[in-house]
Amino acid sequence: MTLNITDINKSFEGLQALTDITFSVKEGELFGLIGPDGSGKTTLFRIITTLLLPDRGEVNLFGINVLENYKKIRQLVGYMAGRFSLYHDLTVEENLKFYATVFGTTIEKNYDLIKDVYCQIEPFKTRKAGKLSGGMKQKLALSCALIHKPKLLVLDEPTTGVDAVSRMEFWEMLKRLQKRGITILVSTSYMDEASLCDRVGLIQKGNLLSVNKPEKIITEYQKELLSVSSDNLYKLVNDLRSEKNTHSAFLFGQSVHLTRKDQNITAEQVVKYLQHNGHENIRVKVIKPGIEDCFMDLMNEEDEVLLSG
């Protein structure tokens, strides 16, 4: 195991930010920590990168205790903080050079590793970092985090505020880095990025809901999920919600994902109910859940546990 996290707890001024977080990341793995803003992702990453001390628990990286040997750890980890930590008044090249010297190396020495990422922004190397687009900043920040050939790359929300095209390209780059033997720990609030990771941890309000391969998380989904569509989406979701047998009804793109309290109620019965309510072009089918469905389901469970407990 490259990274072992055991029973981490952290609170800020009485607010519990992380509760009993335990998981591990294998060597060479691309591990995604997935959860919305404020779920504790950044806090956890800061503990892993020695920037914060937990109230309780242990972190082990390559067999080294992170909490005691912060200096050793800092050589091994490449960290890309949220909000890309770049100097806006320095050019692309100056930023990269600076981080290279800070880590006691040069661009030339490790050009091979960053080439794939850096060559895309190299034509703009004399441009100030503050004048770059989100996608280009992201690539520069990644180059900077890679410049010292870290064994573990920790990326805190690298795709936040970046458009869909840049996001996709970024994941392709991560996949290529992974092939070169770098272990990658990445956090994101985009649920759809889960399928791009080897394993994911779903986190919500400082609690890990589940840690597994994306496809395993999906197979663990217990309920039967129906996709329902009709001509009027807004009326559809309202009508479904007011039906007493509905467990949950949420918009997903052009359809509504529906779970029922009583699994014996068939798709035909749903169609009938909707016809009765004046819907047209009704389509109902059983579908495989996505990560987002699973996350929402796990979120509900967690809330129910909290309420009953």
Binding site: P36, D37, M296
Partner: peptide, 21 residues
């Protein structure tokens, strides 16, 4: 809805629909 959890995000869209309605 940037960075918001999936349930909140959907509830927010319910509101948008309501306003449009």
């Amino acid at each position: 809805t940037g960075g918001v959890d999936p349930v909140t995000r959907r509830k927010f869209w319910d509101q948008i629909y309501e306003a449009a309605d």
